[in-house]
Simulated assay, not measured.
Amino acid sequence: MRDFSARHPKLAKLAAEVGRFGSVGAVAYVVQLGATNLLWGAGMGPLSGQVVGTLCSIAVAFVGNRFWTFGDRARTGYGRETLLFLVMNGVGLAIQLACQGFSVHVLGLDGVLAQNVAGNVVGVGIGTLFRFFAYRTWVFPERPEAVAEGAAREPIA
């Protein structure tokens, strides 16, 4: 495995980022599930409960991703990163709500289990793929010197 990592440093770095992102995401997911189900149990509607639960998890995810998952990447300003993080999470939340809304309003599945599967499994899964790509591409970009070094090392075909 070390030999593979030495021969493919970009892939090894990506795998490490995926692992850290997954760990942060798992903690944020537990926060989101707990808050969402607590709110649903307290009588909040399915979509509004999903929104509030997701907002709680976004706060946890920002701290973990900024300081741990992508801690070695360029710092482009706290305000810029926060704004982009919120925008990308807004898109991720829209993906979740679209999945849940489809389940509730089109398929007529409005039970707690159906809400969890549609919003918290399918929606979060698709939204997570989008978020990982968005965070590493736009929110926490690579340091300019790392990009230049990588381009200098790649052989010309």
Rank of each mutant, 00 (worst) to 15 (best):
G92N: 10
V91T: 12
C56K: 03
T36N: 02
A157N: 09
A98N: 05
H8V: 10
F130M: 01
G125F: 10
G34T: 13
S103D: 09
L109M: 13
V60K: 03
F67A: 01
V27I: 15
I126G: 01
G127C: 10
N65G: 07
V51E: 00
R131Q: 13
V121A: 12
R136T: 07
E149P: 00
G90M: 11
G123T: 09
V104P: 00
F132R: 03
R73K: 13
V91L: 15
D72N: 06
Q96T: 14
A114K: 09
R20A: 14
L38Y: 12
F130W: 15
N89S: 02
G125L: 06
V87M: 11
G45I: 00
A157P: 15
Y78G: 09
N37E: 09
E154T: 08
C99T: 12
T36H: 06
G43T: 04
F133H: 03
V63Q: 01
G53D: 02
D110I: 02
K13S: 14
K10N: 08
V106N: 03
P9F: 13
F140I: 00
T36L: 13
P155D: 11
C99E: 09
L107F: 11
V112M: 04
Y29H: 11
L39Q: 09
S103E: 04
A151K: 08
Y135N: 05
G25E: 12
E17K: 07
V31C: 14
S57C: 09
F130Y: 14
V24S: 06
A59S: 13
T36W: 05
A26N: 01
C99R: 04
V63S: 02
W138L: 14
L93P: 03
N116K: 04
S5H: 02
P141C: 04
E154W: 05
N65E: 10
F4Q: 00
F130R: 00
T137D: 02
T128C: 09
N65L: 05
P46N: 05
R7M: 03
A146P: 00
N37Q: 07
V122E: 11
A59C: 14
I156V: 15
G49P: 01
G43D: 04
E81M: 08
F140C: 01
Q32W: 02
L113P: 04
V18T: 06
G34P: 04
K13D: 15
G125Q: 03
A74V: 07
